[in-house]
């Protein structure tokens, strides 16, 4: 299995404050990789660096062999990023929003096919033609997930994709992620929700204060620390309890 994503000694400083301290890990092609950690641990910063919207202070990040600093345009061709609590353009309908995004990837009949795929993934029924500002949080997230994966990116970067969603919506979003993983798409996602990560991630990295403090499959980590849940493992790793 080839490496879809490789981080080598990655550091990120905001002014005088270092938010990420020499992080290294890799994600295999077709893998669903989870970043777990508390608020401000550095998960979003890592995902933003991978997505090319924040600069890497030192170290390297490569996505399918393309360096995010030296070849950002090539990286953007093969990734899709869904920020935490993201929204869409409120004046557009769901369909128009998908058409707007599809325009960046293709045109003509292929664009129509892409939009149709997005509509199916969003599964919003007639509401796809309603204005986005009338959508509930769950509907919005479904639309944005559809937007993120309809172009079949090689690497989907999802930040806190189910945060704030009710049980049903969170379940359905997880089903979608599981579905795309089965199709071979590589996914890196961050989450507070250890249960969610345990269920859908092949491997996880535990992030604390800008460091990756543990990495492995959920089963490996639970076994290593002799805990029943990933949550317990995390608390043990971070707090030393």
């Amino acid at each position: 299995m080839t490496d879809a994503l490789v981080l080598k000694d990655v550091r990120k400083s905001y002014g005088q404050r270092e938010a990420v301290h020499g992080v290294s890990f890799s994600v295999k092609e077709g893998e669903v990789f989870g970043l777990i950690g508390h608020n401000g641990a550095g998960k979003t910063t890592m995902l933003r660096m991978i997505s090319t919207i924040l600069k890497v202070t030192s170290g390297t990040i490569t996505v399918y062999g393309h360096d995010v600093m030296r070849e950002p345009d090539a990286v953007r061709e093969i990734i899709s990023y869904l920020p935490e609590d993201a929204g869409a353009y409120k004046d557009l309908t769901g369909r128009k929003y998908l058409e707007f995004i599809a325009d960046f990837f293709t045109s003509g009949d292929k664009k129509n096919e892409l939009v149709q795929k997005g509509i199916e993934l969003a599964d919003l029924g007639d509401r796809i033609d309603s204005k986005v500002d009338t959508y509930s949080k769950g509907m919005m997230r479904r639309l944005l997930i559809a937007r993120a994966i309809m172009s079949s990116p090689k690497l989907a970067i999802l930040d806190e994709v189910t945060s704030g969603l009710d049980v049903i919506n969170a379940f359905e979003i997880r089903e979608v992620i599981r579905g795309i993983a089965e199709q071979g798409m590589t996914v890196i996602m961050s989450s507070h929700n250890m249960f969610e990560v345990d269920m859908i991630c092949d491997r996880v990295a535990m992030v604390d204060q800008g460091n990756v403090v543990e990495i492995g499959t959920p089963a490996e980590l639970k076994e290593k620390y002799g805990k029943k849940t990933l949550e317990e493992v995390f608390v043990t790793v971070v707090k030393g309890a």
Partner: peptide, 15 residues
């Protein structure tokens, strides 16, 4: 920025 549509736009394959 508030809606994070800018972040999305910045990761699109466009200059």
């Amino acid at each position: 920025k508030e809606n994070k549509t800018l972040e999305t736009l910045l990761t699109m394959p466009i200059k």
